[in-house]
């Protein structure tokens, strides 16, 4: 399983994730919300910056070639209120990122859930827990 993940397991399934909310500064038209991908990658940079956090990571494809990916998340303001900080992810971390890929085929995606390869979870990346009250 680990080897399969390392090879960049890509799942294309009906959207099980919540709609992307909070991408206030720009739209979400670039992403294909009908598809969800989960990628095993190695973090190369964690840019905890406004307006949206970017995770840069590498993935090995089925031919063991390294692909460079970028994942976009919410703003640091929203993530900080869920328990994230700029040191939650560090270069070298092995993680599985789940989100929606872009439509244009470049190696970029939203990320709505991050789990460390050793099974440790990261804080929720969504809106405040009681935001639908």
């Amino acid at each position: 399983m680990r080897r399969m993940l390392r090879a960049g397991l890509v799942l294309a399934v009906a959207c099980p994730l919540l709609p992307i909310l909070g991408f206030a500064h720009h739209g979400t038209a670039e992403y294909d919300n009908s598809k969800t991908v989960s990628l095993h990658g190695t973090v190369t940079a964690f840019k905890y910056l406004n307006p949206h956090v970017l995770v840069e990571f590498t993935v090995r494809d089925e031919n063991n070639q390294v692909q460079e990916w970028t994942a976009e998340s919410q703003s640091p303001n929203l993530l900080s209120r869920r328990g994230w900080s700029r040191s939650t992810l560090k270069p070298g971390d092995e993680v599985i990122l789940t989100g929606h890929p872009v439509k244009n085929g470049v190696h970029a995606m939203t990320v709505q859930k991050v789990v460390f390869a050793d099974g440790r979870e990261t804080p929720n990346m969504g809106l405040p827990a009681d935001s639908s009250k």
């Binding site: 500064h25 992403y31 307006p51 970017l54 970028t70 976009e72 470049v106």
Partner: peptide
């Protein structure tokens, strides 16, 4: 939350993922 940060941090990414 300074919107202008997007000019510094984000424009290249937006160009990369454009439809």
């Amino acid at each position: 939350f300074v919107c202008e940060d997007s000019q510094l941090n984000f424009r290249e990414y937006e160009k990369k993922v454009a439809i």
